Amino acid sequence: MDRRTSVTFLWITCQCFHLYPCCNVTELLSVKNLSLTIKNNEASLTWDCDESMKTCENISYDVFLKDQNLKSEFVTQAYVCGEEISIVLEKDTPSIVCFMVMPILNDEIDQNSSEICSDQGRSEMTGNITCTVYNTSSMKCSWDYSESLPYNAKYSVSLQQGTTIHCQQYIYDLEMRTGSCSFQDLNINYFDDVTIILNRNGSTVLKDIFKLAEKEILNPPRNLTVIYTKENFILSWKRPHTQYEVSETCFEYQMEKNKELISHGSNSPFHSNLEKECRIRIRAKGEPTCGMNTNWGQWSKEISCEAPQEPSDKTEFIILGILLGLSVFLIVLTFIISIHYKRIAKAVFPRIPQPRNYFDETLDDNLKQIQKLV
């Protein structure tokens, strides 16, 4: 049994027997979505933690203030996630303010700390950097910054997972107050943590740690097919394309049939009654237990699920009448042609007259002239 499996087994055992003090596995701790806002010399920190560790009673978080020499000074201690922590900054605090949040379990310090930096008093970042994975291998990260910053402030974004990948394409709004960048053709592990770093003029102002699979907006399910039976239709599809292999049970589906939402928990075909007018589309999301994004992905194109049109009795009668009329017409035409075929052949193929032989006529005239002379 490897280390990760052992850690997981120990944590599950703790949960089953509610022995919270035995939860001493610091490898499971992590701080996510760390956000920092500074206004009027007061810093506000918020973050999220793993759902799996919220039941442990002996967990806490130490908050440190880091100076320009990267030295850490303990500021406060928190015992919950998701609540805002306010910290009053001293007047002599450097312009660049950096905080570090370190999880502690059973008085053991965890090494999976998270850091975030910002400019004091400028409220530079109106929100945390936001990243979204789309089209299976591309990612877009966006951020905002205040009007107090000069226009020559240069931002750069990089992604770290073993190696460092720099953003390939930057886009700014017309006022240069909203920035975004795009990563293309990502070829990294979607279930391992990646670190997104936002730099301004060479200094780190924001960091975020997450898994790409948790940020992916799934593409629509593929190969939608409708099969009709006598009384209903059957909709089948294939799971959305992803850069990683997961079980079919990791996807949950939702149909929209004539603007009505219908949940469908598995990849099995969807059965429904036939209707005169029917339009249907489908989308997917990940299951929480698989570590995927639990928000709904993109809709597929609408397809028709209307009942096939069956020919009515009136239509069949009209078709039968046309065929009968054509048959009678052909019989009468054949009879007329058999009686008057000579006249018809003469009219259609008239006799072509033979051309006159001008050479013979000229020869006869010459002979007559010779006889007169003799």
Rank of each mutant, 00 (worst) to 15 (best):
E277S: 14
S266C: 07
I116W: 00
N40C: 01
C49H: 01
L218I: 03
W296L: 02
L34E: 15
Q77T: 08
S182M: 06
L70E: 15
G127W: 02
L224P: 00
Y155D: 13
T204G: 06
I370N: 04
P308V: 15
Y253C: 01
L261S: 07
E214I: 01
W11V: 08
K285Q: 15
R177T: 07
L29H: 03
N152P: 01
L367Y: 12
E277G: 08
M53P: 00
L28P: 00
N41P: 10
E51W: 13
C22D: 10
E287T: 09
S138A: 10
K71G: 12
S203R: 10
E115V: 10
K342E: 05
I234Q: 06
S30Q: 08
L224Q: 09
S30I: 04
V328S: 09
G127F: 03
P311L: 08
V348M: 07
T132P: 00
D364S: 08
S156G: 03
K346Y: 04
I303Q: 14
F17M: 03
R4M: 10
V226D: 12
T315A: 01
S247M: 10
E275F: 06
F329N: 06
M292Q: 08
T37F: 03
S142R: 04
Q161K: 10
C181P: 15
I339E: 05
Y79L: 00
T204C: 03
S338F: 10
K54I: 02
L212F: 11
C22E: 06
Y145V: 09
S312M: 07
D365L: 04
S182K: 08
K32Y: 12
R3H: 04
L330W: 00
E361T: 12
V63R: 09
S123D: 12
I282C: 14
R356M: 13
S113F: 15
L34F: 14
L36D: 15
E124C: 10
Q169L: 04
Y61N: 07
K66P: 00
K276H: 09
I303H: 14
S137T: 05
D365Q: 02
P94W: 00
N357E: 09
L206A: 13
D364T: 08
P269N: 02
T136S: 09
R222T: 02
T5D: 12
C14E: 14
R4H: 07
T164M: 12
R356V: 14
C141S: 06
N232W: 00
P311W: 08
L274E: 09
T136E: 15
V332P: 00
S138V: 00
Y79R: 02
L198V: 15
E260N: 15
G291V: 03
E51P: 11
V80I: 09
S86N: 06
V246C: 02
C278M: 11
T289K: 02
D110C: 14
V101W: 11
N267Q: 13
T225M: 07
V348Y: 10
K215I: 01
N189M: 01
I104Y: 07
F64A: 13
R222M: 06
I87H: 14
I104W: 10
N24V: 14
S300C: 03
L323F: 14
Q371N: 11
P350N: 15
G325T: 12
F210M: 05
S146C: 02
Q309I: 08
T132V: 10
